[in-house]
Design a protein around this nucleic acid. Sequence first.
DNA 1: ATGACCATGTAACACGTTACATGATTGT
DNA 2: ACAATCATGTAACGTGTTACATGGTCAT
Lengths: 190, 190
Amino acid sequence: MSLEHILLGLLRQPASGYDLKAAIDSGIGHFWAAELSQIYPTLKKLQKSGLLRSRNAPSKRGPGRLVYETTAKGHTELANWLKSGPQIGDARHTFLAQIFLMDELKNYPSTLQFLEQLRDRWAMRLAALEGIEKMWSARVPNFPKALPLAEFHRHMTLRMGIESNRAWLTWCDESIHRVQERIRKEKNRG
Amino acid sequence: MSLEHILLGLLRQPASGYDLKAAIDSGIGHFWAAELSQIYPTLKKLQKSGLLRSRNAPSKRGPGRLVYETTAKGHTELANWLKSGPQIGDARHTFLAQIFLMDELKNYPSTLQFLEQLRDRWAMRLAALEGIEKMWSARVPNFPKALPLAEFHRHMTLRMGIESNRAWLTWCDESIHRVQERIRKEKNRG
DNA sequence: ATGACCATGTAACACGTTACATGATTGT
DNA sequence: ACAATCATGTAACGTGTTACATGGTCAT
């Protein structure tokens, strides 16, 4: 299970399940998602295996917090996972399946509209990611060369998000252009 | 469920569960995977809902085949799914999580090796996809402009595969370069 | 007082993989 | 004879989402 290792990694700083949900959404949201209902049981399971320990802590508002942190055994497990080589999941891209089958509609304008919706969403995502990088670079002198070890690794994942989003946008624009050409040709023939 | 709609779409040509597994692996393998143990029950479920019908057919070798095809109701359902807009799944990229946490190893050579493994796998995938396009273009005169409706849509998904793989490779090379620079700097300082 | 946020959890369901079971045919 | 391929299926398990349950605090 990858979520186990992700929690293990994020918990090198003590945090509660609620904190981890926020850290995932804000920090790695562009390539990972997790719900609280999955996080809480996973933390308990990790503690049972001796990879995490927890303590109760008060909260300013709301109920008491359960703060977890990684044990020595947890560090070992995390290191082994990182050394085990890249886990390239079979990414399922539902929207590609939709395009693959979209000839069913026998109608170029439907395809066009679909691609434009895709482009809009990706343009927004790309702008968000570029914004994050811009703010980061404003904060750190000699960015990104001067980034310390941990930030350097985090920055690589941000760059990956930006670069793939850019490629997808380019592909969208190309595809939109090709569809528009076909619509034009049909008109001239009809 | 997306697999339901994918089977529905592929079944505009009659086929057995076994055939569909082969069609998925060879046709959309670069963005979708499915096991026979998932395909068979899904087909039964679709038939029960009236979106597919089946008939028995003999086989040259092995047991009898169950050949399915889409009903009118199935076509309607498929069209509705295609018109419902792009489904952008929260793609989970485990390898990005690994990089994000890899500062744990406190060791640039580990990161370097990881990135090189990623690059090698993507280089192979890219070569495979480009090979498919090359063979396709050799077979069809005036490729890709002359492609008919269905093939045009399939070609767009192939292009997406090629373009994102290329972007990932570029990102890999960039990242490898950045890590190597850091290793060099450490040596000079040490 | 109403809604947003803090904070933890359970239950039911949906989706997907791995392992197992069965058995015929074809090529080496 | 042995392995690969054809062909269908079940069972157990792992992973992830949605809905539900509970209740305190803070700002408007």
